[in-house]
Amino acid sequence: MDKCQFCGKQATVHMTQIVNGKMTAVHMCGECAAKHGLFDKEGLPFAMLSTIGEALFAGIKKSASMNGLICSKCGCTPMSFKETGRLGCPNCYKDLKPLVDGIVESSQKGMVHSGKVPKSRTTVEVEKALAADKVKCGDGVGSTGRKVGKRGSVKGRVGDLQKMLDEAIRDERYEEAAALRDEIRKLKK
């Protein structure tokens, strides 16, 4: 009978996961499994909760642009992400963009959302947001299974994506640029 890898008691939880093509088996007692929160960490290695941030952080290319980043709304920094493995608030996606892009690049194949958009966005909210110039592209069109709201036009979305593409090329974010290019091609079909 296997022993718990953490405390040596009899293991009652046995899990197998494939990470980067390598099979890992973990044996734990129930207490240690609960303590390490090893369940339901989809898509992530068998990292313990506190080290998920480190694992994600280690996987990204660090650049000078990362220094001094801080979210103006919640105060989250790349270091606090490293500690917790979680961002602080939705605004972190704007203020900590280099960090977020690094993590997205290393953990996702796609770079641009092409799924559904919140229902309200396709109508009133988008108009409000546009008026306040908060949202750059406003029609909420995904490339597949897409919903087109009142303002929805493929042309508008292509224009917005083109702008994002230009920015990405300017900043030498080529992987993102390639994804944006593909998204534009799909829409133009």
């Binding site: 998920i52 493995g85 939705p90 770079m111 919140p118 309200s120 750059k136």
Partner: peptide
């Protein structure tokens, strides 16, 4: 409710590994 959403990243989640859909 006003749900956190971004045109490029999609639905915003506390861990960036879940963004998009």
């Amino acid at each position: 409710l006003d749900i956190a959403f971004d045109e490029r990243y999609g639905f915003l989640t506390s861990c960036p590994t879940n963004v998009g859909t």
